[in-house]
Structures are given as C-alpha cells and as structure tokens.
C-alpha cells in the first residue's frame, strides 16, 4: 500500500488556477480578435446590429454580475474569519445572482429567436453580411460566456457543499479562493462583452 504523504501547497493550487485563467483569457481572446477584425471591416453593420440589443437588460445583467463578484469576495473574507454562516449566505446569493443572469439571458435570446433572428434562420440569411457576422459573434460569445456562468455556478455550488461539510474551513480555503477567482473571470469577460456588444455606435 502506498502511504502518500499529503502535504498541502496552497501557493501551487492558486498558481494552477491562475495559469488556467490565462488559458480562458486566450480562449475568449481568439473570439475578441475575430470580433475586432470583422468590426473593423463592417463598422456600420456592427453598429446596426448593436442597436437591436436591449441595453437595459444588458446593463441589469452587468450590475448583477458585478454584485455577484462582490458577494463571492465577501464569502472569502468571511471564511478567513471563520464565519461559516456568512460564507454560505454569500455563496447562496452569488449562485442566485448567477441564475438571475441566466434567466435574463434566456428572455433576451428567446425574444430574438421568437422573431426569427438566430443563425441559420431565413431572416438571418437576409441580413447584410456584416450584420450576420455581428449576430453570429453575439450568439457565439454570449453563449460561451453563459456556459461559463453555468460552470461557475456549479463550481460555487460544490464550494458551498464543501464549506457545509467543513472540508473548507478557516485554515484551508484555497479551493474556495480558486472558485472565487474563476467567478471573477466570468465577471471580467462580461465587462468586456457588454460594451463591445451592446454599446457600439
């Protein structure tokens, strides 16, 4: 039988997470590159596409995500002070805000799909090429982001479970910090997506 000496290295765990976040930035970076090239080539079409979006829902979602980043940060501070109850409350609020974000997104997408604006539809094919590219990128980028919101919420759900089971506590919370880091990344990407998609002229 192997007797593995478990020695914990929190610095290594956080370093691993940061490295992973770099890869996420580059994953979206490829899309931002495509976005900037096609927007440079079709500035008017992109602006027209941008006007179709509902700035209000976008702004609400931005506030929702920024707030959720705050609550996740509070949960980590609370963990440092050993306040388990506050940790669980804050994680709960964060996950709730994630769901609010997704519900908004659902209505936003649903509305567009309802009047036939989705990749492959007849309306979509009739759009000027630049506007088609805009909406394709809109669906692709916000869709990939929404996928990250879902994954992030699931991760935070696990974190809450571990906190509940006392597997994460005031002396061992690197995992919670990593979950928080991932959530901040989800927030950060949206902060770039919102102006690039909703606020262009």
């Amino acid at each position: 039988m192997s007797t593995h000496v478990e020695h914990r290295d929190d610095t290594a765990r956080k370093m691993g997470m940061w490295l992973f976040l770099f890869t996420e930035l580059l994953l979206f970076g490829g899309l931002f590159l495509v976005y900037s090239i096609y927007r440079f080539a079709n500035p008017e079409d992109f602006a027209r596409g941008g006007h179709e979006l509902n700035v209000f829902i976008g702004a609400v979602n931005t506030i929702v995500l920024i707030t959720s980043s705050l609550t996740v940060a509070i949960s980590i501070s609370a963990m440092q002070q050993g306040n388990k109850k506050l940790v669980l409350q804050m994680l709960g609020i964060t996950i709730f805000l994630a769901i609010v974000f997704l519900v908004n997104k659902y209505f936003e997408w649903g509305h567009k799909i309802h009047y036939d604006l989705y990749p492959g539809s007849n309306l979509f094919r009739a759009l000027p090429p630049g506007e088609g590219l805009y909406f394709l990128l809109y669906y692709f980028m916000t869709g990939l982001h929404a996928l990250h919101v879902i994954i992030g919420a699931i991760i935070l759900g696990f974190m809450a479970w571990y906190v509940h089971k006392d597997e994460i506590d005031a002396t061992n919370y690197a995992l919670l910090e990593n979950g928080g880091l991932y959530w901040h990344l989800v927030d950060l990407i949206w902060i770039f997506l919102f102006p690039l998609m909703y606020l262009i002229h």
């Binding site: 096609y38 990749p119 590219l133 394709l136």
Partner: peptide, 17 residues
C-alpha cells in the same frame, strides 16, 4: 459552429474571410 449553423464566419460569400 460554421458546419452546424452555416453562417459564413469564414465563407467569403457571406462576408467571412
């Protein structure tokens, strides 16, 4: 995505490059 949706991300006839 291009292959499933056929939207012209890299198709010059649809504005792609």
């Amino acid at each position: 995505a291009e292959r499933t949706l056929g939207v012209g991300l890299f198709d010059p006839t649809l504005g792609g490059d």
